[in-house]
Nucleic acid binder design. Structure first.
Length: 203
DNA sequence: ACGGGGATGGGCT
DNA sequence: GCCCATCCCCGTA
């Protein structure tokens, strides 16, 4: 299990979104490591993509880090209560990102259960175990990801992604979730997930 | 099973 | 003052 290098993140956004499936997302917190396998992603392909925060070169304090180099963490606050974690892709000044939508928990299960529900992992029924990380806001809660990690370099030591086991995987593609405002981009099949994985957020 | 609606507050016009 | 790349609960069946 090797930390992904810069070159991985410099690939085009859709390739990166597909290749992130099966990789390990790791957060080294003050109280231990929390990690999970990435099972669902969405590609936001840049200034032409009406669903992308940087559509038409929009540049504000919130999305500023999207203009950085591939391999930067882009984390934003949404709906008054949740965070979403994204991986910036491609060269600088080419603002694209991949939203991580779901994880399969691997390490730090008790810390995740504590963070989300205030309980020990083994106290949870199976549906509560699944709902620990089967959505973008949920996985941030479980891993302890907040705005304070916005802009971190994923080639660093706090928040990073590792290669997974070389296992055959089957990838499904569908339209992205909750972007009905994006006109002709609404139906682009840029959401990817591991088929048959029970931690995927929907269908 | 499925759907409707409320929570909740930063970000931006 | 409206929007939002979400989540969870509480109806109906």
């Amino acid at each position: 299990m090797k930390k992904l290098e810069r070159s991985f993140y410099l690939q085009d956004t859709i390739t990166t979104a597909r290749e992130l499936l099966g990789k390990y997302l790791v957060h080294e917190t003050g109280s231990g490591r929390r990690a999970g396998i990435i099972v669902e992603t969405e590609a936001y392909t840049g200034v032409e993509d009406k669903a992308c925060h940087a559509y038409e070169w929009k540049r504000t304090p919130r999305n500023e880090v999207m203009y950085g180099i591939g391999g930067t963490a882009y984390i934003y606050f949404i709906y008054g209560m949740y965070y979403c974690f994204n991986v910036v892709t491609g060269a600088e000044d080419n603002p694209c990102a991949v939203l991580i939508r779901a994880l399969e928990p691997v390490e730090g299960l008790d810390a995740m259960a504590q963070a989300r529900l205030g309980k020990a992992y083994e106290e949870l029924d199976s549906s509560r175990k699944i709902s620990l990380t089967n959505g973008p806001g949920k996985l941030c809660g479980a891993l302890g990801i907040t705005k304070s990690q916005n802009g971190l370099d994923l080639c660093g030591d706090e928040l990073y992604i590792c290669s997974g086991p070389a296992v055959p995987i089957s990838i499904k593609a569908t339209p992205r979730v909750n972007i009905g405002y994006a006109g002709e981009f609404t139906d682009k099949p840029w959401r990817f997930y591991l088929e048959n994985n029970k931690y995927v957020s929907k269908k």
